[in-house]
């Protein structure tokens, strides 16, 4: 079998070019191994080979993000690597950010596995932990001796598409990704054991550390509703009959935007719900119960509101992840704003 082809990324300092005074060094490709690559080579043995090393100054990269990224990506692509590695960046913040940025770009653009390594307080860890594996290191280059074996081991596993173990086993920073596992004991037993420990004041490990929720500050009240352009947005799953976008009954992977211009009200002939988390009978009989087009048309007519926006946005809130919900809202909130909408009623179920 041919060796796994590795391309390695270093900043100007670790490539031995110079310190801060050389931080404007432009992207450069060197065939073969440079600096810390030696330690990795030892660990790779016959299985993998660093075919080339790309070097870029930290200032140059961060100040010329677009140009430098494009240049580096081109260099990497031409080397046809099986895996791309960057760092270790230890506690060097700008270097960490560069390693993370390039790794993420390579992963997305070239579809090959990527890997970096940093100290836990390096800002690059929090910026990129969700996107890539970042091996834990000490805060300075003295930690290379322990970083290299962990990096090489995980790199080989990634290149060979082997199953990656949990963070503590592989030595990478927790990525914040929930993965299912079968434990040795039943949940009920684990609960009793955890409670006994908690009561005794012994140490116990919760299986799900509570997330910090982001709280949204409500906007100030609309001063004059008679001039407001109102839009309806729902997580109650109201869609045109037949669910043309096939929004899922649970864990929705999309939302829909639907035209209600000229409609005096929704009817059971034209609309229905796609939601699988509640009994759909009453919503299907009269979809205005979830998306109150009828009441708002009355208010529009009587002048209590300025107008009702021609489109409504709808998804299914049943088991749909918060990350997806946020992404949908980010998209259509801009559209609503551009369409001159001044107030939104969000209906849920």
């Amino acid at each position: 079998m041919s060796k796994i082809r590795v391309v390695h990324y270093l900043n100007q300092f670790f490539a031995g070019i110079g310190g801060e005074e050389k931080a404007d060094h432009k992207p450069e490709l060197r065939i073969g191994i440079v600096g810390p690559g030696m330690a990795l080579k030892k660990e790779f043995g016959e299985e993998a080979e660093i075919v080339s090393t790309i070097i870029c100054g930290d200032s140059y990269f961060n100040e010329n993000l677009k140009e430098a990224s494009a240049q580096i990506l081109k260099m990497i692509r031409e080397q046809k690597p099986d895996i791309f590695m960057a760092g270790p960046a230890f506690n060097a913040g700008r270097y960490g950010a560069a390693c993370g940025t390039i790794c993420k770009m390579v992963k997305e653009e070239l579809g090959i596995p990527v890997l970096s390594a940093m100290y836990e307080e390096n800002p690059g860890v929090d910026m990129f932990r969700k996107d890539l594996f970042i091996i834990k290191t000490a805060d300075s280059a003295a930690g290379m001796r322990t970083a290299a074996p962990a990096m090489a081991k995980l790199a080989l596993k990634l290149a060979k598409k082997e199953e990656i173990g949990p963070p503590e086993a592989e030595g990478y920073h927790v990525r914040g990704i929930r993965k299912n596992v079968f434990r040795d004991k039943l949940g009920s037993k684990r609960a009793v054991e955890m409670l006994v420990k908690k009561l005794k004041g012994d140490e116990f490990v919760t299986e799900y550390p509570m997330p910090q929720f982001d709280n949204v500050t409500p906007s100030p009240a609309v001063k004059d509703m008679s001039r407001a352009k109102l839009a309806l947005v729902t997580s109650g799953g109201i869609v045109p009959k037949g669910n043309p976008d096939r929004i899922e009954s649970s864990s929705a992977s999309k939302y829909g935007k639907y035209d209600i211009s000229g409609l005096a009200a929704l009817t059971s002939e034209t609309s229905e719900t796609a939601h699988g988390g509640y009994d759909p009978v009453y919503a299907n009989k009269d979809p205005n119960r979830v998306l109150p087009v009828d009441a708002l048309r009355d208010m529009e007519k009587s002048g209590r509101i300025g107008s009702l926006h021609n489109y409504y946005y709808s998804t299914v809130g049943n088991g749909t992840s918060v990350a997806n919900s946020r992404a949908y809202a980010l998209e259509f909130a801009h559209e609503l704003k551009n369409d001159g909408v001044t107030a939104v009623i969000l209906t849920s179920t």
């Binding site: 969700k130 955890m194 116990f204 919760t206 299986e207 997330p211 749909t320 918060v322």
Partner: peptide, 27 residues
């Protein structure tokens, strides 16, 4: 948990620091 297909989303619709001992039955 309902952490999304990629497991990257928050798992519950409500949370509190007092819920410091959780047993989960999976995503």
């Amino acid at each position: 948990e309902y952490a999304g297909r990629d497991g990257a989303s928050q798992s519950l619709a409500d949370s509190d620091p007092l819920a410091d001992a959780v047993v989960t039955a999976g995503n």
